[in-house]
Design a protein around this nucleic acid. Structure first.
Lengths: 330, 330
DNA sequence: TTAGCGGCAGCAATCGATTGCAATTAATAT
DNA sequence: ATATTAATTGCAATCGATTGCTGCCGCTAA
C-alpha cells in the first residue's frame, strides 16, 4: 500500500494523501475524512525510507554500547529508548564490541542509516581511532556521552560525580572505624581514573598518604576478577578492614574470597561496590553500593537529546550527584 | 557525499559509480580503481534509505523483546545481532513493553522500516491482539519465535525442552533422597505451562499424585516474589526438602527465606532454578540451575534466519535439549 | 461586470540510490 | 573494407514519499 494506491482509490492525487497523513492544511474537510478512512481501511503505514529520503530526517538515534550484556548499560538504553519513543524517535541499539574495527563499523552504520544523533555508553568512544571515525563519518551529528565528556561543539556529556562519591564511601567506612581500606579498580578509563582519585582524596582526609595506599588496578570486571584480587589482598595485607570496588560484580567476587578466609562481613571487613546494580541485592550479604545515577543520567541525556533535536540549546555538560545505598555489607 | 558527486569528480555517470560500489561487472578496470580511490578519499557511505527504496531490501531484522532489561533476553539479542551482523544484516532491538498498544506500535515500526524478518523473545507475541497485528502489518514477513511456536506458514520456532528438563530436576532431587518437593512458577505462559507439566511428570515418576503437589503459581518474577512465596511454603509445609523455581531470580529470593528460617541449603532444602543466569553464580550458595540453552537457541534462530533470508528452507520447528548445571544448592 | 482573494487540488521536481536497455567504441573475424 | 561481437558507458525510469508552485473555482466587493 502506497499513497498512490490510496490516492487512486480516493480519486485524488498523492499530494492530498500526503497532506492528510502529515496533518497539513490544504485539503477539503470531507476529502480529508474520506482519505483517513481509506488509510485506516488498508492499514497504511508510511515507508520511512522514502520519507526519510526526501525530508532527510530519519527519526533515528544510534545508541552505541560497548557490551549490551552489561546490566547498567542496557538499562540506560532502555530508559533512553523509552523517553525518545515518546518523541517519535526510534533508537538503534548497537553493540560496538571492543575492537576499533567493530566500533568504526557501527559508526558507519549510523551514517548509512542517517542517524540524527548518537549516544555513547561505556568506554566505547575513548580511543583516538573512534574519535577520528566520528569526525569523519558523523561530523555534524550531535553526540551524547554517558558518563564522559569531550570538549567539542557537537558533544554533550552527563557525568556523575564518582570522584566525590568514592571519597564519601571512604569517609563512611572511616566513620565506622575502618582505617585499613583497599581499593579495587578495573581497566583504566576516565571513569575509573575519577574513582581512583576519589579514593585517594578520601584516604587523604583520613590522614593517609597516597604512597602507602592499597590500590589494586586492572582488576577484571567479573566475579572471578574480584575473587582473585581479594585473595591477593588478603595475603599481602591481612589486616585489611575495608574494601571499595569499582564495580558491584567485583565486590561480589571479593566478598566470596573474604568469607572463605574466615572473615566476617562487615564485622572484619566492610565492602562497598559501585553501580547499585541488581547484583547488590542478590549477593550475600547484600552489598552497600555507590549509586552512580544511571537512571537519572539517562533521563538527562534523553532530555538533552530531545532539546537538541528540537533545535533548542542545552548546556553541554551536566554533573550529577551520586549517593550511597547502604546495605548489609557495611 | 552522493554517488553523483563522486561521479562528477571521476568524470563518469552515477551508474558506473553504483556498479563499482556493488562490485558489479561492466566497468573498466582502471576506472573502477579510480572510482574506488575517490570513494575512499571522501569516506563515501551509501544512503541506505535510498538504496532500500529501490531494492526494497532493508537489511534490517526486528528483534522484539518484552523487557530488554531481562538478562537472558538481552543476551539472546546479543547473540542474534552478532550472528546477523556477519551476514550484513542489522538488528533493530525493540522493547515492546507489556501492553498490546505498545506491541502493536512496535510491529508498525517494523513495517515502517521495512524489516525483512522479526524475532520475538519472551511472551511478547502471545495475545490475540498481537497476532492480529502481525497478520495485518507483517503478512509476508518471516517470524522467528524464541522458545515458542505458532503453526503458520511464515513462522519458525525454537523450543528448549523445559518439560523434560524440569522432570530431570525432580529426578535429580529424588536421587539425593528428597521427596517433599515444591515448585514455584511465574505468570502463566506456554513456557511456564511446560515447566509445570514437567514437574508433575517428574513427581509422578517419584510416585506422587498430581493432586497433592505443592505447586505455587503466579509467583512474581523477582527476588521478592520468591522470598514471599517461600515464606508461605515454609509456613504451610515445613517438612519441605526440595524446591524448584521457574526462574533463577525467584530461587535467589526463596533461598533467602529458607536460610532465614534457620534451614540449611542444600542440607535441609535443596534448591534448583531455571535459566542458568549470572544470578546463579552470585547468590549464596551458588544455585544449581536448569540451562535452557538460550545461547544455542539464539544461534539456531540466527541460522534459521539467515537461511530463510537467503531463500533456503529450514524446518519450522527445532527442539533443543536442556541440561542441569549443578552448583552448591543441591 | 470585473478585479481580487482565499481555499483546494494537482503537477512536477526532488531526495539518493539501482538497473534494464540503448548507444558508443574498440577489437576481431571475414 | 565491412560485418560481427564484446566491453564500456550513459540515459532514463523507478522506488515512495514531500512540497513549492501554479491553476482553477467560487465568492465578495467595487
Amino acid at each position: 500500500m502506497t499513497i498512490y494506491e490510496i490516492a487512486r482509490e480516493a480519486g485524488v492525487s498523492a499530494s492530498s494523501v500526503s497532506r492528510v497523513i502529515n496533518n497539513k492544511p490544504g485539503v477539503n474537510k470531507q476529502m480529508r475524512v474520506k482519505i483517513q478512512q481509506l488509510l485506516e481501511k488498508y492499514h497504511y503505514v508510511p515507508n520511512e525510507a522514502a520519507r526519510g529520503l526526501v525530508t532527510s530526517n530519519s527519526k533515528l538515534v544510534g545508541v552505541l554500547i560497548a557490551d549490551i550484556r552489561a546490566q547498567h548499560h542496557i538499562r540506560g538504553a532502555y530508559h533512553i529508548a523509552n523517553e525518545l519513543a515518546r518523541h517519535n524517535y526510534f533508537c538503534m541499539i548497537l553493540n560496538t564490541g571492543n575492537s576499533d574495527e567493530e566500533r568504526t563499523a557501527c559508526i558507519q552504520l549510523l551514517r548509512q542509516r542517517q542517524a540524527e544523533a548518537a549516544v555513547l555508553m561505556g568506554s566505547t568512544f575513548r580511543t583516538a581511532a573512534v574519535q577520528v571515525a566520528i569526525e569523519q563519518f558523523l561530523p555534524d551529528t550531535p553526540i551524547f556521552i554517558m558518563n564522559g565528556f569531550i570538549d567539542l561543539p557537537n558533544v554533550y556529556g552527563v557525568l556523575s560525580d564518582e570522584r566525590w562519591g568514592i571519597a564519601d564511601c571512604v569517609a563512611m567506612l572511616g566513620r565506622k572505624g575502618k582505617r585499613s581500606i583497599a581499593f579495587f579498580v578495573d581497566q583504566p578509563t576516565p571513569s575509573s581514573a575519577l574513582k581512583t582519585e576519589g579514593f585517594i582524596r578520601g584516604m587523604a582526609a583520613l590522614g593517609r598518604e597516597e604512597a602507602g595506599l592499597w590500590i589494586y588496578r586492572d582488576v577484571e570486571g567479573s566475579q572471578n576478577g574480584g575473587y582473585e584480587a581479594a585473595k591477593r589482598l588478603l595475603a599481602e595485607h591481612p589486616e585489611v578492614d575495608g574494601l571499595i570496588c569499582s564495580q558491584d560484580i567485583i565486590a561480589c567476587g571479593a566478598m566470596r574470597a573474604i568469607q572463605k578466609s574466615g572473615r566476617s562481613i562487615p564485622g572484619d571487613v566492610a565492602v562497598i561496590g559501585v553501580d547499585n546494580s541488581s547484583y547488590a541485592e542478590i549477593c550475600t550479604p547484600r552489598l552497600t553500593s555507590l549509586d552512580n545515577m544511571i537512571f537519572d543520567s539517562c533521563v538527562t541525556i534523553a532530555h538533552k537529546l530531545v532539546d537538541v533535536l528540537n533545535g533548542d540549546s542545552t548546556n553541554q555538560r551536566t554533573m550529577l550527584l551520586t549517593s550511597i545505598v547502604e546495605r548489609e555489607s557495611t
